[in-house]
């Protein structure tokens, strides 16, 4: 067995080392399965993050879950289909509105980004980022600079810019997901990271 009740109990108490062990034990299967089925590594990565975020958020109840593995896979499956559905809608939307709509999404004038609550949440998420990530995010995502340009401005390597923006996007996604029941746009943030 890859896990035991003691490990789950420790996670339920908020033990991050135990959570890491749980993550190590289960994320490869979640990642591989979703990657093979969707043929999209970005979706698979997001599913892993969203799934384990849900585990962490519900950790106090872990003790009461009888079949953890089944519970975990059900969550992962539901998240996968959710993302696929949103992705389909989104691609459709892009096809209808054209690529320029992306810019409008980011300038907060279109689509469900108009949602005030979501805007507030997004701003909060950005504010919570460490300074380096915040700078990187703003230059890349709000000022539409290229990665190389950002690297020059911040005087770091393009790899560092990539690392910082990856972490920023993940943190924003996790924060928004943790604080809103349904997060249509943020679920799709990885699309943006691919386009910009």
């Amino acid at each position: 067995m890859k896990y035991n009740t003691e490990l789950l109990h420790r996670v339920s108490l908020g033990d991050e080392i135990a959570f890491r062990k749980l993550f190590d034990a289960f994320h490869p299967n979640v990642y591989t399965t979703v990657f093979r089925i969707t043929n999209d590594e970005y979706i698979a990565e997001d599913v892993v993050q969203d799934t384990f975020l849900k585990v962490w958020m519900n950790r106090v109840d872990l003790d009461e879950i009888e079949n953890f593995e089944g519970w975990l896979y059900t969550i992962a499956r539901n998240i996968t289909f959710n993302i696929l559905k949103k992705g389909k809608n989104y691609k459709q939307y892009l096809a209808e509105e054209g690529e320029s709509s992306l810019l409008r999404i980011y300038s907060n004038t279109d689509y469900d980004v108009q949602d005030k609550d979501f805007q507030n949440l997004l701003q909060k998420a950005i504010h919570r980022l460490p300074p380096k990530q915040q700078q990187t995010y703003k230059l890349l995502k709000e000022q539409y600079l290229k990665r190389k340009e950002v690297a020059q401005i911040l005087n770091v390597s393009p790899e560092t810019v990539k690392y910082n923006i990856d972490q920023a996007m993940k943190s924003i996604r996790a924060y928004c997901l943790a604080h809103m029941k349904d997060m249509p746009l943020v679920l799709l943030l990885h699309f943006y990271s691919k386009y910009f």
Binding site: E16, V48, F52, L53, W56, R128, K170, A174, Y175, A178
Partner: peptide, 11 residues
């Protein structure tokens, strides 16, 4: 990065 994001997400 994922674990960092998860831990930092909680209030």
């Amino acid at each position: 990065q994922i674990l960092t994001a998860i831990y930092s997400s909680s209030t």
